[in-house]
Computed example of a mutant assay.
Amino acid sequence: MKPWILGLTGGIGSGKSAAAAHFASLGVHTVDADHAARWVVEPGRPALASIVERFGESMLQADGTLNRAALRERIFQSPEERRWLELLLHPLIGQEIAANLEQAQSPYAILVSPLLVESGQRQMTKRILVVDTPEHLQLERTMRRDSVPEEQVRAILKAQAQRDERLKHADEVLLNDSDLGHLQREVERLHDFYLNLRGGRP
Rank of each mutant, 00 (worst) to 15 (best):
S106G: 09
V28Y: 01
E135W: 01
R45W: 01
K168E: 13
R83T: 12
S14C: 11
A69W: 01
S106E: 05
P114V: 12
L116A: 10
V187G: 12
V117K: 03
G44C: 12
S58G: 09
R201G: 14
L139T: 04
I110G: 04
I75A: 05
R141S: 07
L92K: 01
S58A: 13
A47Y: 01
I12F: 14
L167I: 08
L129E: 04
R127T: 12
D34A: 10
M124Y: 05
A37S: 15
N67A: 13
E57F: 00
P202Q: 14
G44N: 07
P79W: 05
R201Y: 15
L92M: 08
A19P: 10
I12D: 12
W39I: 04
L139W: 01
D63W: 03
S25Y: 03
L48K: 02
I51Y: 00
M1V: 11
R201T: 15
A20D: 03
R154C: 08
I110E: 02
V52Y: 00
G15K: 05
A161G: 15
E150K: 09
L85C: 02
L129N: 02
R163Y: 02
R201N: 15
W4G: 10
V52H: 00
N100Y: 00
M124H: 12
A49D: 04
V28M: 08
F23L: 10
G64H: 02
R127Q: 14
I12L: 15
Y194F: 15
F55S: 08
L197G: 11
A109S: 09
A104W: 02
A36P: 05
P46C: 06
L137V: 04
E86C: 13
T125W: 07
A70N: 02
M143A: 08
I128W: 08
A19H: 05
E188M: 13
I110A: 03
R145K: 13
A62M: 04
G13Y: 03
H136D: 06
E140Y: 04
K126Y: 05
F193L: 15
M143V: 06
